[in-house]
């Protein structure tokens, strides 16, 4: 009975354990690839454009409306006990500490992470990754390292933009639509915002950038089984990256604040 139970646990855990091991090995290969030349500058720039610049429109729209709705809800709530003056602080702190990094990460995962998994997955099933190896090129270094570095750099950059645009969105609703004075909104924003809030938000963004690129590349790189496999890899990349971002967000917040 006990042996059967242990066998059952072993059978259930075998695949996840194998996947985790392969993921850790891939992570080590990425770190090793980062340390050695050539540094693939051209690929890094291309990936930075893809992850950062091309994600800008959707991140901007999300940021402005998030800032706006935060201000609107904050104003409605705070008005009940006469604290409308704190709306600016709520918007600024929520954006920099939480929503800036998390929302940018989720949006970029949906856009760039899915594209990464699909592209690498297609390259795997059409033997392009094998072809890279036969041309004496390390595919981890050539394909994954540039994406990983770009994610780690561009997600904090996008978070800065999200923070600023979100605060401006909040300003627009509070000042222009709801008639609070501009001075009091800005004072509420600056008085409670500390450098540490921004710094911690950016640290989170850097971690999320590393996590979603690594997970998406892992899913794409180890794709099996044709078009269906590519579809599975893409879905898996978005689901696992999003879960990782949301779960790690709590632990990072608990640890960093």
């Amino acid at each position: 009975m006990i042996i059967r139970f242990i066998e059952f646990i072993g059978a259930v855990m075998e695949k996840p354990a194998e996947g985790l091991g392969r993921f850790i090995l891939l992570f080590c290969a990425v770190l090793k690839g980062m340390a050695r030349p050539p540094f693939e500058a051209r690929n890094i720039i291309r990936q930075m454009l893809e992850i950062g610049v091309n994600s800008l429109p959707v991140v901007l729209i999300t940021a402005v409306f998030t800032g706006m709705v935060l201000a609107l809800q904050g104003y409605t709530g705070f008005k009940r006990f006469g604290a409308e003056g704190l709306v600016g602080s709520v918007v600024a702190l929520s954006m920099t500490r939480e929503l800036g990094p998390v929302l940018s990460a989720l949006i970029v995962t949906g856009r760039a992470g899915a594209a990464m998994a699909a592209e690498l997955g297609t390259m795997r099933v059409t033997e392009q990754i094998d072809a890279l190896e036969t041309l004496a090129t390390n595919p981890v270094k050539y394909l994954i390292v540039p994406r990983f570095l770009s994610g780690m750099v561009m997600l904090p950059a996008l978070t800065v933009v999200t923070d600023i645009i979100g605060i401006l969105g909040g300003y627009f609703v509070t000042v222009t639509l709801l008639g609070t004075s501009s001075k009091s909104y800005l004072r509420a924003t600056w008085n409670f915002l500390q450098v540490q809030d921004i710094y911690v938000g950016l640290t989170k963004a850097c971690f999320f950038g590393a996590a979603f690129t690594l997970i998406s590349c892992y899913k794409g790189f180890y794709t099996r089984g044709g078009a269906e496999g590519v579809g599975r890899a893409t879905t898996g990349a978005v689901v696992f990256s999003s879960m990782t971002i949301l779960i790690s967000d709590y632990f990072l917040s608990a640890w960093l604040f």
């Binding site: 033997e127 094998d130 072809a131 190896e133 036969t134 041309l135 004496a136």
Partner: peptide, 13 residues
């Protein structure tokens, strides 16, 4: 591998 050239079934371009 620099001494090799390989043509893939699917061309793998």
């Amino acid at each position: 591998r620099k001494r090799f050239g390989m043509l893939f079934q699917s061309s793998a371009l």
